[in-house]
């Protein structure tokens, strides 16, 4: 019996570290984890905190998250207040001085790009808005070069011996991304100048990149689900708009957008909002491939 208890104890709590990698990197979301992996390759061990099938705004705080943060050398976050509702307490509970904000092992990717639509004077009556700007900047593929560069720079900063290695994989990643990006752009060219309706403000930057116009959000204000009467009003308001599609993220209730698309008899599409959200979205490239496939006319 004593032996069994001891074995259970060891199985439950036994220390395991990543043996070969030089850096332990924790990323808040799947796409960040994959970006770090693409640049760091075998020199990094990447752990992702959020579950891709869940809403990125509301990651359930769990003790296991504190454990993942405990031994990290680098924490890479999306920023723009996207993690504000869940990361600070688990970060505090991880008691890891290396990855606190303002320390060497902390990278806020939002600081590398220009966020669209900053609303520094918003109040909570405007809904769940992010004063720094729209934090869903990853949906504009033009941002990826700056993000990849930032990650490579940070990895090199923490792992001097690997600088040459990171430089090489950054160049490789950049080249492939630019090439794929052109393909995606070609594929979605027919959408240019068209109008769309989205559930939440997630796809502002995607629409911008495609040259599309977002004519309405289904949410009355960010973070507040629409009521039936709000949907009716929205439908009326859209009567004289030439909307071509209604889109939303995969983790939300689908009735509202589906109903709206049906009423307008336009394309209705549910998009994976992160790497790992669907079986096909394995990495950044396949994720964007899937986004493009689902958007393509």
């Amino acid at each position: 019996m004593k032996k069994m208890i001891w074995a259970a104890w060891v199985a439950l709590f036994c220390y395991h570290g990543s043996a070969n990698a030089t850096l332990n990197v924790v990323a808040t979301y799947g796409w960040i984890g994959d970006l770090v992996q693409q640049i760091g390759q075998e020199r990094v061990a990447v752990t992702v905190l959020a579950q891709a099938s869940f809403d990125p705004h509301f990651v359930p705080p769990k003790p296991s998250l504190a454990v993942k943060l405990r031994n990290a050398d680098l924490l890479v976050i999306n920023g723009g207040q996207l993690e504000m509702g869940w990361l600070p307490p688990v970060l505090r509970q991880a008691s890891n001085a290396r990855i606190q904000p303002n320390s060497e092992g902390f990278l806020d990717l939002s600081s590398l790009v220009t966020l669209s639509n900053p609303r520094p004077h918003a109040t909570r009556a405007d809904g769940d808005v992010h004063p720094d700007g729209n934090p869903h900047y990853v949906f504009n593929p033009d941002n990826m070069a700056a993000l990849a560069y930032g990650v490579a720079h940070q990895l090199c900063h923490l792992d001097k011996a690997g600088c040459g290695f990171y430089e090489q994989s950054l160049a490789r990643f950049d080249e492939r991304w630019q090439k794929e990006k052109q393909g995606w752009q070609q594929r979605l060219l027919p959408l240019k100048g068209k109008q769309l309706v989205q559930y939440h403000e997630s796809f502002d930057d995607l629409a911008y990149w495609l040259g599309m116009t977002v004519v309405a959000n289904v949410e009355p204000v960010p973070g507040v689900p629409p009521s039936a009467s709000h949907l009716e009003k929205l439908l009326k308001r859209l009567a004289d708009q030439q909307v071509v599609m209604v889109i939303q993220e995969h983790f939300r209730d689908r009735e509202a957008t589906e109903w709206l698309a049906k009423q307008r008899q336009v394309k209705w599409q549910v998009l994976p909002s992160d790497v790992g959200a669907t079986p096909k979205s394995k990495d950044l490239f396949s994720w964007f491939n899937e986004l493009v496939e689902r958007l393509a006319p």
Binding site: Q81, D108, H157, C163
Partner: peptide, 18 residues
């Protein structure tokens, strides 16, 4: 150069401050 000691991608301000 990537090996420069200058840190890029700092934080504009406390990202958790409301």
């Amino acid at each position: 150069k990537l090996s420069d000691p200058v840190k890029v991608g700092g934080i504009k301000r406390n990202p958790f401050s409301g």
